[in-house]
Computed example of a mutant assay.
Amino acid sequence: MKTLVAYFSWSGNTEKIAKRIVAKTGADMFRIERKVPYSEDYNTCAYREAKEEIEKKIRPEIKTPLPDVEKYDSLILAFPIWWYTSPLPVWRFLESYPDWKGKRFIFLRTLIQMIITT
């Protein structure tokens, strides 16, 4: 069974977790990044850029070409919660594939909090 760990990380916390998972499982890794990077300033990123995307339902373009998901049986998707949902680049990633039938998904938002605190 082939697994892909796809993650979105603005601050680096989720990236650390994704790297740990890859090291333990041997899975492939894909970083979901916005084509136009978010501001490095937290307030600008959170209260202007990310909030606007949520309010206007904007699905920003992704920087790196998407991987061929056909070769994966499982997808581990890791991301922080922004404005009570996943960051919109994660939505773009998921919506970029017309058919996820037969794929097993593991969403790691809850587990990330548990791993960081232990």
Rank of each mutant, 00 (worst) to 15 (best):
I58F: 00
P87R: 02
F8N: 01
R20I: 06
I81T: 14
I81K: 12
S39Y: 08
M114P: 01
E53V: 02
I54P: 00
K56E: 11
P80A: 09
M114V: 13
A6Y: 00
K57H: 12
L108I: 11
F105C: 14
K2D: 13
F105V: 11
P37K: 08
D68I: 06
S74N: 14
A6D: 05
G102D: 07
E95C: 12
E95N: 11
N43W: 08
P80R: 07
V5P: 12
C45E: 05
I76Q: 07
I116C: 02
R104T: 12
F8T: 02
K2A: 14
S86W: 07
F79E: 01
E49M: 04
K2E: 15
P87A: 02
F105H: 10
E40C: 12
Y38W: 13
E55Y: 02
P37Y: 03
F30A: 01
S9K: 00
F93C: 05
A50C: 10
W100G: 10
L75M: 08
T117D: 14
K103F: 09
Y84D: 15
A50P: 03
I32P: 06
W10C: 06
M1W: 03
L4Q: 04
Y97M: 13
K19R: 10
E55P: 05
Y84T: 15
F107W: 00
R20M: 10
R48H: 11
L88V: 09
W91Q: 10
A50R: 01
A6Q: 03
R59T: 13
P89C: 04
Y72Q: 06
E49R: 05
S11M: 06
I76E: 01
L108F: 03
I116D: 05
T3C: 13
P67R: 00
V22N: 03
K24R: 10
N13E: 09
N43M: 10
S39K: 12
R48W: 04
S96D: 06
W91Y: 15
A18K: 04
L66A: 07
V22C: 00
T64C: 05
R31H: 11
G12T: 08
D99E: 13
C45M: 15
A50W: 00
A18C: 11
Y7I: 12
V5A: 15
M1F: 06
F8I: 05
T110V: 13
K57R: 13
P37R: 09
N43V: 11
D68H: 02
E15H: 10
E61I: 01
P87M: 00
I21Y: 03
I81G: 07
F107V: 12
L111H: 03
E55S: 06
R31K: 12
